[in-house]
Design a protein around this nucleic acid. Structure first.
Lengths: 109, 109
DNA sequence: ACGCATCTTCGAGATCTGTCGAACATCCCT
DNA sequence: AGGGATGTTCGACAGATCTCGAAGATGCGT
């Protein structure tokens, strides 16, 4: 491994290891669902740019929950962390689930 | 109201009042998801007949969560309480949601 | 009337969750 | 090198959740 202590890369579960109940739980919170809905409009966003009203540390917690459930993927770029939906992986693992839930939320969740 | 104290009829939310996040939360528990999957095979069952391994009081709690989220409907019959899925109501409120989630769970949730 | 079956409600305990502030790490820019 | 921006981690706290056993309500049989 490189000598310099790079910022630790976050871990993401393999597609095959994504658990349905974890995903449902991750999506059952308003802040997290807002994150997911926003990402389904825009492919990639930095953490600080989501229309949610919580403290940075709280937001970080929600990203962790979504990431560990396999709903989002995060990568480093400079001093920002860019977030994307794992839409393709989720479609492979649970066909139709993400789009159905997002559509339901958009439609008056 | 009648003089005799009938067992209190349980309350169910109107279809239009079903909240997506409540439904997702209700479905994010293994015991409750087992109940839902079982009901999607068999139209109506008594509480005690589900293949789950928890105490009766715990089961009663899970039924309450599902009922208040609008996922199931319960009616009295003799000294049993019969449970059905609110599949039609859910399909009206959130098209495709229930069948997608149940299919995902069946498929290795 | 009595017991039995079915299920709920209540109270309690352990764990999980959402929230925040303070402190820290990393990177860019001047 | 120093300062600002961006996020994370840690510790703490309140509230929710899951679990159970004990006790209660209701109805069916005998």
């Amino acid at each position: 491994m490189p000598r310099s202590a790079r910022r630790r890369e976050v871990q993401h579960p393999d597609t095959a290891d994504i658990d349905l109940l974890d995903v449902l739980h991750a999506l059952s919170d308003p802040t997290r669902m807002t994150i997911v809905r926003t990402l389904s409009d825009e492919p990639e966003r930095a953490c600080g740019t989501f229309p949610v009203d919580v403290a940075p540390s709280t937001l970080s917690h929600h990203f962790k929950v979504l990431r560990e459930a396999g709903v989002i993927r995060q990568r480093e770029e400079a001093n920002r962390r860019l977030t994307t939906l794992r839409a393709v992986d989720l479609e492979e693992r649970f066909p139709g689930l993400l789009s159905t839930v997002v559509a339901a939320y958009r439609n008056g969740g």
